[in-house]
Amino acid sequence: MKHSSDYPLETRPVMGFDDSYPAGFVDPPHAHQRAQLTYCEKGVMTVISAANSFILPPRRAIWLPAGTVHEVHCRNAVASYTLYIDPALDTSAQQARVFEVSDLVRALIFEVGHFHPDYDLEGRDGEIARLLLSEIRRMPLLPSALAMPSDPRLLRVCRTLVDNPADQRDIDGWAALAAMGRRTFTRAFREETGAGLATWRQQVRLMAAISRLAEGQPVTTVAYDVGYESPSAFSAVFHRIFGMAPSAFIGLAPGQD
């Protein structure tokens, strides 16, 4: 397994490498002096910062501004590319975000990921790196972020749901897990996440569903895996939120060829 510390990241404004992680891999909280772009080619990653939890499905990428403390969880085996970028090159990207990856951006990421550490800044390699940064700004964002609470009691609840979206505990069960009274729990949860527990859990389930659908898993399997009582109930919610049926999302997902 490769590590960023193994690479001379400061020699050029954009540096990167390909990497792979086994199922169940966890990279504990850390930060980088440079902005980070991670593209997930295969598998599903969860990236958790202090403010948000992001689902990173296949053929999507996440941008993390320099200094963002984050941890990474791999639900299954993951193949990825990670680029480290001088933050001065993209001052408009001050928020962590997950975005779509066009065929052009994917190809550019692959190219930069194989550059020699001393690539020519004024030649073809330098032009490719600049084009990649320009194209990244044009990529549409994905609804893949969940607001995370700072209260450790509430954070315990949220992490449990992220790990298992199908957990069917009721509000009293979650309040008990947080060691809080029901009213205190519901009030504090809304204050810290901006949503009630039911809405937040629905977001967790839909984000988990997106990652599974992007892998090509059947709609019925996904519906039950993320906690819905039936595929029809799942499809109704998915269509209401995303404006399309889950089967249509599978058809649009890159890499399902």
Rank of each mutant, 00 (worst) to 15 (best):
N52E: 15
A166R: 09
Q95T: 15
D125Q: 15
A77S: 11
A175I: 09
V112T: 04
A31N: 11
A236H: 15
S4W: 14
S102A: 03
P57H: 00
Y119N: 01
E135Y: 07
V14K: 02
R60Q: 02
S102Y: 01
E71C: 08
R106A: 11
A188S: 10
L108E: 08
G67Y: 04
V219G: 04
V101T: 03
G227A: 03
K2A: 12
P117A: 00
D19T: 14
D163N: 14
D163V: 13
L83E: 06
L37T: 07
A188C: 00
H70Q: 08
Y81T: 13
R182T: 14
H30R: 09
V222G: 07
L37D: 00
T46M: 05
V157Y: 04
I250N: 06
A208Y: 02
L154I: 02
A50K: 11
L104W: 04
D120A: 09
R190H: 10
N164I: 13
L56G: 05
F234M: 08
H114M: 11
L213N: 00
H3L: 13
F54E: 01
P87I: 05
F17W: 09
E122M: 02
R201D: 04
F54Y: 09
Q94P: 00
R159M: 15
G243T: 07
L83S: 01
